[in-house]
Write a protein that binds this DNA or RNA. Structure first.
Lengths: 124, 124
DNA sequence: AGAATATATGTGGATATGCGCATATGCTAT
DNA sequence: ATAGCATATGCGCATATCCACATATATTCT
């Protein structure tokens, strides 16, 4: 039961659903997630960590980058089922569509390549 | 997306998973849920309401009782999918098994038929 | 109408969650 | 070793969640 609680709790958040949405398109490093969703670095990192802990994602290192992708071989079979469900009936949402659009332009350039990332209190 | 958030949030709680677990066995009124899970009246009622609001349950009145059951025709198709998923791969849990045992002895007698319901600060 | 029963809900308190900010860690290249 | 970039994490704050308790609402029966 705890596996299911962990998986559903991880998915019951808009930020994390948006992340899963773009990772179903393709694997991403943290800075690409930041760009696609237009969110801060700590927010991206933390929510990626939560999704990983719940069994949705795996992370691999590629140089300085950490690349996250959907883990279809996860130990938490509930997570795989939920990811599958979401993939098969995606949110026809405006937000997620916008995220996917920005994802196309996202590059593996890192968070300090600022100007394009809007932080909490606007950009300096 | 909001439907999915609502559905997963509703399921990401042990009490509500336990409720769904017994309602997958058979429909129940509030007092039967109290008995099966050994929880307080307000706790049972509130969590039933949350599950209903998320689209998992329907309620029908039967005299003084309100009878809840799993809504397979729900407008929130995510809820139906999740309920189906849970039904097809139930938690082999000790807690849920115990709940199902108590459910067999649960009767439509109401919360005031006390002594068997352990309230928060023990029974008077 | 009034009493009794079943369920819903307002309220307050303890705990959990999500975020930004600042900083720490880890890798790479010089 | 040092610098620079990418990511992770400690911390504090605002808000959300969950519960018990008390009370309100709705139905039935007399």
């Amino acid at each position: 039961m705890q596996d299911l609680i962990k998986a559903t709790k991880a998915l019951s958040d808009e930020t994390r659903l948006r992340i899963l949405n773009i990772l179903l398109e393709r694997e991403c490093c943290v800075c690409e997630v930041m760009q696609a969703l237009d969110i801060s670095q700590s927010r991206a990192s933390r929510n990626l960590g939560i999704l990983q802990d719940a069994g949705f994602l795996t992370a691999k290192r590629d140089g300085t980058w950490i690349v996250y992708s959907v883990d279809w071989q996860t130990a938490n079979h509930y997570a795989a089922s939920l990811a599958k469900l979401f993939k098969s009936s995606p949110a026809g949402d405006e937000v997620t569509a916008h995220d996917r659009e920005r994802l196309k332009k996202a590059e593996r350039v890192g968070p300090s390549c600022a100007g394009r990332i809007r932080t909490g209190r606007a950009q300096a």
